[in-house]
């Protein structure tokens, strides 16, 4: 399951290298030359060679935003928030196309909820549409990310409002964890019927151990002992089959651990 998700989103993860010809079309030779110099960099993003290659691109064109973004990735993945923020701010300064990436990373890697909300709301104001982009791995629409941030800041009703509004759009295709996140928000405000409804929706999209865990909790609260035990068992089984929320770098919002399920 983990691999399926990982491989499924791989093309989105690796998409990032700009089309150099766009710079040429705009008669920006410096940026075109910088872009061409890093068209195929054979080094791992953590390595000295990789960093130096992009430094050279910046010597050719000091405002080549992609170079700053590319350089920032290793710092992000190693948890160096200081260097990452300096570099990604530079990327955003020279090209606002990196604003969605910065927003997501602030949330995903550093749980900077307020910072991520500020970036996402800036995107909304600029784009004046719901089409503001997705997480770096493609699992979450950025409005879902915004809702998760509000939920983390204990503004559950605000989170619910954002998600309900997004899901009411008939053109919106639910992501792998969307209904689960809404279900958990409803659970936290003790609206168990709505929580149950969205857990069921989640089961149809992507049946997760976490989802069954919350259904088991609702059944337990409502005194449906047989149902609770059966759902708990199903949740544990799913977990052991690795059908749980997984990310190779960080943990998902509202992830539930096996020990927590077993102790329910």
């Amino acid at each position: 399951m983990k691999w399926i998700i990982f491989i499924f989103f791989l093309p989105i993860c690796v998409a990032g290298q700009p089309n150099c010809n766009v710079f040429l079309y705009n008669k920006d030779t410096a940026q075109y030359n910088a872009c061409k110099s890093v068209e195929s960099v054979p080094y791992y993003q953590y390595t000295r060679n990789y960093q130096e290659k992009f430094d050279k691109a910046l010597e050719i064109c000091p405002y080549f935003a992609f170079a700053y973004s590319a350089k920032s990735t290793a710092y992000l993945k190693s948890g160096d928030f200081l260097t990452w923020k300096y570099l990604i701010d530079k990327a955003v300064q020279f090209d606002s196309i990196y604003l969605d990436y910065r927003a997501w990373c602030r949330y995903q890697f550093f749980r900077d909820y307020k910072g991520a909300i500020a970036d996402i709301e800036l995107l909304e104001r600029r784009k004046k549409t719901k089409e503001i982009g997705y997480s770096a791995g493609g699992e979450y629409h950025l409005l879902v990310a915004k809702a998760m941030c509000y939920s983390a800041l204990n503004q559950k009703n605000k989170a619910i409002e954002i998600l309900e509004d997004l899901f009411s759009d008939s053109t919106y295709q639910a992501g792998l964890f969307d209904y689960y996140q809404l279900a958990v928000s409803y659970f936290q405000i003790k609206d168990y019927d709505k929580a149950w409804k969205y857990c069921l929706e989640q089961s149809k999209v992507n049946n997760l151990a976490e989802n069954k865990y919350y259904m088991a909790r609702i059944s337990k609260i409502k005194g449906n002992t047989q149902e609770y035990l059966s759902l708990k068992e199903e949740s544990i089984l799913l977990y052991k089959k690795e059908k749980y929320m997984f990310d190779p770098y960080t943990e998902h919002f509202n992830k539930v651990y096996l020990d927590t399920i077993e102790k329910l």
């Binding site: 983990k2 993945k77 190693s78 990310d247 190779p248 943990e251 651990y257």
Partner: peptide, 16 residues
Amino acid sequence: QYHNNSRGLEYRGEKL
């Protein structure tokens, strides 16, 4: 790096 085997953080009893 801890993410190089694509299994994330690996700790007995998970991050919990």
